[in-house]
Structures are given as C-alpha cells and as structure tokens.
Simulated assay, not measured.
Amino acid sequence: MNRPNSPAARPGLSPATAPLNQVRYLVGVDGGGTGTRVRLSERSGRILGQGESGPSALGQGVEQAWRHVQEALALAAVQAGLAPLDLSQVAIGLGLSGANLIEAVAEFHAQQPGYALVALDNDGFTSVLGAHGGRPGGVIAAGTGAVGEALRADGSRVCISGWGWISGDEGSGAWLGLKAMRHAQQALDGRAVPGALARAVWAVAGQERHTILAWCAKAGQHGYATLAPLVFEAAPDDGVARAFLAEAVAELESLARALDPSEQLPLALSGSIALRLREKFSGNMRARCVEPQGDSADGALLLVRSALNSEPGV
C-alpha cells in the first residue's frame, strides 16, 4: 500500500519541471474560500517571510487561485528582502480547499507558472501535517462547519464529517444555530416552553412569524452560525441550551472515534466551537487533545519537503 507521503499516493504531485537539486526555496500555502497565506523558507527550513492575499479555493476558479498564491508569495519575498523569485528554483506545497475536485486539480497543475515542483493536497490534510509535525494524529475542526481528518499510524488517511451544513456538520456552529432557531420557532408556536435561548434568538430574528421567516430565508450557513454563541450564553439558565451543547459534545466525540477507533492518536482542535467545548469532552478525549505544533501552511511546507526528498537523485 502506498503511504500518504509517497508521490504515488498523492494525486496532486506534479512532475518536476526543473532539476530539483537546484531548488533553493520552499513555499507552503494555506488557501481557502476567504484568503491565502504563504510561508517562504530556505531549503534548509529557515523561514524567510510570509504573505497573504485573497481566496484560493479551487472551487472558486483555478486562475484566481494561482493569482492569489502568486500575490501572496510576492509579498513574502518582499518581506524576506528578496528580488522576485526564479520559480525554477522554488518547490511549492499547497493545502487548498477543493483539492478533491479532480478536474480543478488537473487544471491547476496545467496552469502552474513554472515551479520546479508542485505538491498539492487539501487544506484539511496539511492542517493535520502541521498540527502534528508530519506524524500520525488527528484534527477536529468545528467552527462554522465541522470536519475531522487524521493520519493514522499505519499511514492511511481518513476524513470524517464535513458533509455541509444542510445535511451534516454535526457539532458545528451552523448546526447549533439551526437547533436554536428550531427551538425558538417551536416556542413561538407554543410547542416548547420559551426560555433564555428562545428569547435570545427572538432578539436577533424578531418575535413575529414574518420576521423569523425573513431572517431564515437569507441566513445561510454563516447566519445560522452566528446564533451558536447564544446557545453558550443561555446554557447556565436554560436546560434546552445545555442539552444542545451536550449533543454537540457527543457528536464531536463520535467524530473523534470514527477518526481513530483505537482512541490513541493525539488530537488537535481548531474552530471556535471545538475550543469552547474542549473542557466538556470525556476524560480520554480531553487527555488526547494537544496544542498544534503548526498550522496548515507549516503542513504544506512538510508536504513539499516530503515530495522533494522522495524524488530520486535529490
């Protein structure tokens, strides 16, 4: 079986376009739907500079992704005091949202502007690599949405949840917000007893049927996620809110067990919901939670370094 750090196991690894023994710089990219962060290092590993630009999620377009990666890299080079880089001397690793879109990945590689080597994976996996320094471990990300990814001890990879806020993402902010809104609607109908949580939702969306319907019609994932803090705030005085938080804990623990049935891998948490619920997790899961060693851009640097080192003759 191919291990995840081998070129054959990583469909986003492109053929080398220049002699890899001439590579002087490594670049790590964390790119999503709201922004792109780039970290530039010497081949030895010393960090030289960082830069940021607009979104580079592949689902938003390959041309945009490369444009923003290049803009962020240019800023990192300026911060490092370097002249514009000769891309034939640069190997780049990217953790991009949407890197599971096969056609977009192929187009992304076809449009690469001349890097000596391009290693591409999804931003969830580079988050795992960064959080655990390339060693086995898992990441549970629960903020607006929820997803878990892990690199297991046998070298296999797994992704759990992340199905989107309408049908999944249990334990996320949008999921909690949906539950809060349903409760507020039921309380307005007289199907539930109004408490602190229902009143807090009414304060946001109104206490009339037409205002609540109008709010829901335009809320979207982000809008529902803005209701999640109300659940935490109401919990001390509202049994319904406390029950919702207990359900969120159970969902995230279920996600963690699916990531690692042995319940032995270290876990890094990210996202506002996961971090706020950390102290409510069961003893075993709480004991396995560790502070991340690095972020997705660090993981992308590890990704490209692994790809570079695996090439023959380098």
Rank of each mutant, 00 (worst) to 15 (best):
T211P: 03
G49Y: 01
S306T: 07
A119F: 09
A200I: 03
T36P: 03
S306A: 10
A214G: 12
E263Y: 09
G164T: 06
L245H: 09
S270A: 14
V147M: 06
L176I: 10
V231E: 02
G124K: 08
G137S: 02
R182Q: 11
V29W: 06
G168I: 12
L58R: 01
A180I: 08
Q221H: 11
N284A: 12
G173W: 11
A228K: 11
S56G: 04
R242A: 15
G162S: 11
L96P: 02
Y25M: 00
G12L: 01
G145P: 13
N284S: 13
V304W: 00
L267A: 02
A9W: 06
E233D: 13
H222R: 13
E170R: 15
L151A: 12
G173R: 07
S254N: 15
L96D: 05
S272I: 01
A83R: 15
Q64F: 06
V240R: 03
G145I: 08
G177N: 10
T211L: 07
G294E: 04
V304P: 08
P55Y: 14
R37Q: 14
L197H: 12
A76Q: 05
L85V: 06
G190P: 05
G28V: 00
S254L: 14
S270P: 13
G137R: 00
A217V: 11
W66C: 07
R37A: 06
H210F: 14
Q70F: 11
E247I: 03
S296N: 06
G223Y: 10
R286I: 00
Y115F: 14
S167E: 13
A110V: 06
N5R: 08
G12M: 01
G283A: 15
Q89A: 13
N122C: 06
L275P: 14
L255A: 09
D238T: 04
Y25A: 01
R135F: 10
A119I: 10
S41Y: 00
A234S: 11
L308H: 08
E170T: 15
L151K: 06
I166N: 07
G177H: 12
M1G: 12
A16G: 01
D260Y: 11
K218I: 10
G299T: 02
A72N: 07
G81Y: 10
A297L: 03
P11N: 04
A274M: 05
V27G: 00
A119D: 10
R135I: 04
V158Y: 15
P266T: 10
R182E: 14
F125N: 06
G294R: 04
A256S: 15
G137L: 02
G271Q: 04
L301F: 06
Q70I: 12
F281G: 02
F232V: 03
A142R: 05
W163P: 02
L120Q: 05
G51Q: 01
S56L: 01
K218E: 13
V240Q: 04
H109T: 00
G81T: 09
A192S: 13
E52Q: 13
L73K: 00
E52F: 07
R305N: 09
E170S: 14
R157E: 15
W215N: 07
E253P: 05
V90Q: 07
S56R: 03
R37G: 09
Q50A: 10
G98H: 01
N21L: 14
A225L: 13
S254R: 15
L269N: 10
G294M: 05
M1I: 12
P261T: 13
A297R: 04
A307V: 03
